[in-house]
Design a protein around this nucleic acid. Structure first.
Lengths: 263, 263
DNA sequence: ATAATAGTGTCTATCAGACAATATCAC
DNA sequence: GTGATATTGTCTGATAGACACTATTAT
């Protein structure tokens, strides 16, 4: 793979004209999911202050700083700028899809690399009213559209959004992200990334996350057995012993053990 | 979402300076897999005629024609240019990953959107010696590197490649593609895309494809039962009756029924 | 006849889901 | 005690994998 630079190659590179091809703009966009106190799945959206799609809601995103950062770093920077959360310590930031039809942004040809971020419950306090833009958490709810087809909508503190309020093609991207999250649930550790504290949680909290992602109730005894078999039995989590959380009866708490399986 | 263009928005767009941000180059690269007559998994590689990485082998790829095509269309065009195969009729062309570290190409910052293409057995006749470049099919074999770790290598008609002969970061991309292919095997119809004729195949041919992807032998009776349960039982394939293929004893042939499940 | 391959049968261990029953603790 | 929640138990049908066995046909 590594190669020394020959004289011929050096000459070639020196005469190479980087402006030969017209280039598209490239952005990193981040779909940020988290859990709220009602144990519902939430998404962070930004109200656009400028055209195009002024006053529509969009997922956070920004242009790649060409030559200075990778596309993954751009996504991490975008997450940090919008939420103050550093993408290192255990935040799950993962590529979802790249979209690039010429007309998806009226300004110019924009190629967007879209990421999904799973932020632990309680960590996200979106700083509202950043002058030009407004960031807000919305509950994701399942519903039915005018055709009776399954769809989703967003419920915020004082307002409720339908897909008609969403900028660009971000509607499709969010739906894709939700499907992928649901599909990955059974063979990844995604759900753990949404726990308030990965080092101290009980089975019920993990079950609430699964329910929120699947939009359906699950059977507690069966979920417990799955947990024992797939996680405790395979040493993916460690038992911490029984503890009582304030106002609740005591429960067995667990600690998540990160593993370097690749999926 | 659609929106009518207001006067204010029009004014904004007119004064918008598209050259405000420096832009990276964007390429669509395609990892092309197919099956050969030995029922082994093959990959199409191109010998580079120019710097950088002159004389190294690479996956086919090319620059996005900004403003004129989507990134998916660029990938389809690239597949067509290298192989003469149109991406419509049943060729499985799917996004794998997008990479964009600033220094992965010495010329300039290149963001590559990488696709995986599954080409039916027998369709691929790479047109060798296109002056500047040479295209060739390589068998993908499993092996062990100098550290004893699991790795892969490529066996061509007259030459054999190790990962040391591969340009850019294409080594990692190919490994990622193989892992994904393996992971998807049980819950997608990927294997059908590699059949010589999706409308006329027997169970053994499908089994050979699974074996090639997994790099391991499978039990025929168990595979048959899986096929009956998961495909025939769920009407994903249709039974055509028993036929004898030349020199072989007669077998039940099946036809694949495309479905629009999304994964 | 023989060898190869198509196809059937069987056994076991595991697993998902439904649901009953018991245990523990806050109030 | 009462009610809510944690935990254990039981049953059924589906599933994966190992492997023995029979049926058919090219040679």
């Amino acid at each position: 793979m590594d190669q020394e630079q020959t004289a011929a190659e050096k000459a070639f590179l020196d005469q190479y004209d980087v402006s030969k091809y017209e280039r598209p703009s490239v952005t990193a966009d981040v779909i940020i999911f988290t859990m709220d106190d009602d144990n519902e799945l939430n998404i962070l959206l930004i109200k656009r202050g400028n055209h195009p799609y002024k006053d529509y809601w969009a997922i956070p995103g920004g242009f790649l700083e060409t030559g200075r950062e990778s596309i993954d770093e751009a996504a991490a920077r975008e997450l940090y700028e919008e939420t103050g959360i550093k993408a290192d310590d255990g935040i799950d930031l993962r590529q979802l899809i790249t979209v690039g039809t010429p007309d998806r942004d009226p300004r110019t040809h924009v190629v967007s690399v879209v990421y999904t971020a799973l932020v632990p419950k309680g960590l996200l306090q979106p700083k509202a009213g950043d002058d030009a833009k407004e960031a807000k958490l919305f509950k994701i709810r399942k519903g039915y559209d005018e055709n009776g087809d399954l769809s989703i909508y967003f419920v915020g503190d004082k307002c409720s959004l339908t897909m008609k309020n969403i900028a660009f093609d971000h509607e499709d991207l969010i739906v894709t992200a939700l499907k992928r999250l649901r599909g990955r649930l059974n063979y990844t550790d995604d759900a753990f990334s949404l726990l308030q504290d990965k080092d101290r949680f009980d089975i019920l909290e993990l079950l609430r996350i699964h329910e929120a992602i699947l939009f359906q109730k699950l059977d507690k005894p069966n979920f417990r057995r799955m947990f024992m078999r797939d996680y405790l039995g395979k040493h993916r989590v460690k038992e911490l012993g029984q503890y009582a959380q304030e106002g609740k009866r005591k429960t067995t708490l667990y600690k998540y053990l990160p593993s370097n399986r690749d999926i």
